[in-house]
Write a protein that binds this DNA or RNA. Sequence first.
DNA 1: CTGAAAGCGCTTACAG
DNA 2: CTGAAAGCGCTTACAG
Lengths: 331, 331
Amino acid sequence: MKRRVTLQEVAFAAGVSTGTISNYLNQTAPVGKDTKLKIQNAINEMGYQRNEIASSLRRNHTKSLGIIVPNVSNAFYATMFQASEVEAQKRGYTISLGNIHYNRERMDEYLRLFSNKRMDGILLAAYSIDVPGDWYSDLYPPLVVIEPPSLTLPFSTVGIDNLAASYEITKYLIQKGHTRIAIIVLSRESLRFAGYQKALEENNIPIRDDMVQELGKLETDLIAQGDREMSKLLEKASFTACFATTDLLAIGAITCAKRNGIKIPEDLSIAGFDNIPLASIVDPPLTTVAQPIEEMGRIGIKLLIKQIKRKTRAKPENIILNTRIIVRASA
Amino acid sequence: MKRRVTLQEVAFAAGVSTGTISNYLNQTAPVGKDTKLKIQNAINEMGYQRNEIASSLRRNHTKSLGIIVPNVSNAFYATMFQASEVEAQKRGYTISLGNIHYNRERMDEYLRLFSNKRMDGILLAAYSIDVPGDWYSDLYPPLVVIEPPSLTLPFSTVGIDNLAASYEITKYLIQKGHTRIAIIVLSRESLRFAGYQKALEENNIPIRDDMVQELGKLETDLIAQGDREMSKLLEKASFTACFATTDLLAIGAITCAKRNGIKIPEDLSIAGFDNIPLASIVDPPLTTVAQPIEEMGRIGIKLLIKQIKRKTRAKPENIILNTRIIVRASA
DNA sequence: CTGAAAGCGCTTACAG
DNA sequence: CTGAAAGCGCTTACAG
């Protein structure tokens, strides 16, 4: 690769100063008619491409945003990522990806890296992991978190009411007549578990330990994980419905059940959470709670850019989006 | 956000020169034992974070790569993107996304933008679109293309033998006894169409215009597009098998057929192309040709970094990966 | 409207 | 082993 031509070189060729070319290019000051012409000609002939790195150093912003997700090849995050990209691009930002594979250390690494690369802001979609403490300080670029573990963070957030949504879908299962309802969930500490618990308690259904399958951590291949967890559940308990707290887990669970000759929904109802595109395509189509995935990505970017615009750390905003139950054939 | 501390400030605090701190940080020259200590203390206390932008300007590389894909939320590209990210991260590069929505202008924009942002290299996965002519010059960063439209480009490429793979799957359909085989394809000019054509001709089966559904362009929602195209096909022709040249199109086609009461594979066999994860999950599971998607992403990055390492434009390499037919229930 | 010059925050010969 | 100084390629007051 050849060394690329610099502003200084085109300035020399055009017989003007670098300052006025910069003013012309950035429309930051009026430039004379024939000066413009000379400049444009030189630029065209020499194939000048502005060095944004130098520009960034001087201007002190990069017009780049970092997005950190657990796993881009998971449809949920792929969709969110895409929506973010569209929104960011519209506003002149380009975006970098940090894929952390549900792994805490990688999250820290990417946070640090993006800060060092002087990203103007960072969007973090790391449900259930929380932000490292030092990020609370203002030595770091603005951060907004999607699906925050709690609302008391000093960051703007976008998410849904996980407790309420889980409560609703569990209630739906109960209304369909189920009383033996299993759950596949990341942790008993999670809001989704709390919603399940609330619905059962309200209906005087005791929570049975053998029906709660606690994951501890999420894996990259959630479908395989859901399949395995369902088979463990099947061994130790008998139930007529199962709430798998993520669609991909639910899909794995369905696969497992079908393989074992269990008919869905006749023998076993299964409900998911997220409403990824796949949910409507699997057999049977999945009953689930819809999250406005794209909107979360878009709003995340908007909040982030808002934080960037006002230089001082603004009071964080917490946006909570609506969910709704999508009834399909699986439950 | 506070102004971040600079090397100069820590140099002052530590009582050494910026040069030796730089040498310490980059291990680019030996540094005295207690000098190290003083430096490390100052860095820790002051919370120094290196400004990679300044570093990039001076060093003339950014350790960033751009990846351009038609649509990240499409499982095929999401998977490829993810594999690329893992490979790039391993080698110390961070990656930026250009999502072009199957749109030529956006591709040009991102190419230019990434060049201006001084990405060290660009990975382009834009099947069927070709690279703008001026990129053949060496004013631009190294570029490698995944799934190249042809092998005569002056760039390194990774892909598969589309003609051979389509030929094989079509032959498979013929061997199953089908003679009325429809095809849903981007264009009659494409290699996938050529493979289909070759298989039919070899078996003296005439190609019937009413059985080739030519798309012209791909849309963001390929499943919806496949659904629509299948319904057009159903109206005008009668056939016992259909080769949809992309899994997502095939899945849309299946959805359409099922809705019309057509049994798959009893009434109609459908074959796809790509073997995305979804292919094994739909009902019925899709017979398709498997592309080594992750490997394509990984090798793409490797080729790219190879080009970056030798500064002079190297002779391009064209890697062709193997495909194989995955027989499942749909055909 | 235009130019000369300082400066963004690093790295890199060079001299000692 | 360490420091002084130039330079990467822009943008931005400032003066005219």
